[in-house]
Amino acid sequence: MNIKQQMKGDVLVVALSGKVIGGPELMEVKDVFQKAVDQDKKKVLLDLGRVNWMDSSGLGVIVSGHTTLSRAGGSLRILNATKKIHELFIITKLITIFETYTDEQEALNSFGD
């Protein structure tokens, strides 16, 4: 799994790629969300477009990020979830708490609401 971060305006875009599978790597993702809050970056867009495999451990870290950012008054939104990852969001009903987008600009604009 790889993690790339980039500021676009006042939104931190975090792009994951590869396999998001259980193990110590996931702590790195958790840390990204915590550091974002520590640095007062409270608008985070998580790009899952290049994630080719994810299980419940990955969902758990995303939920953790949601909680971390929400408690700090921020927001975590999802970009480019593949069909299979979207299915996991539906099965677990996480689709009810996350805003998901397929267009990056639309996602970035949504934080301005």
């Binding site: 299980d55 419940s56 939920v63 909680t67 099965i91 677990t92 009903k93 996480l94 009810t96």
Partner: peptide
């Protein structure tokens, strides 16, 4: 029930739910 109420926001416990659905 990981998909219900406050348990929706737990960070774990979704594995069997996913396996049973897939």
């Amino acid at each position: 029930n990981p998909g219900e109420g406050e348990e929706l926001l737990l960070t774990r416990g979704r594995g069997v739910l996913i396996a049973r659905n897939l």
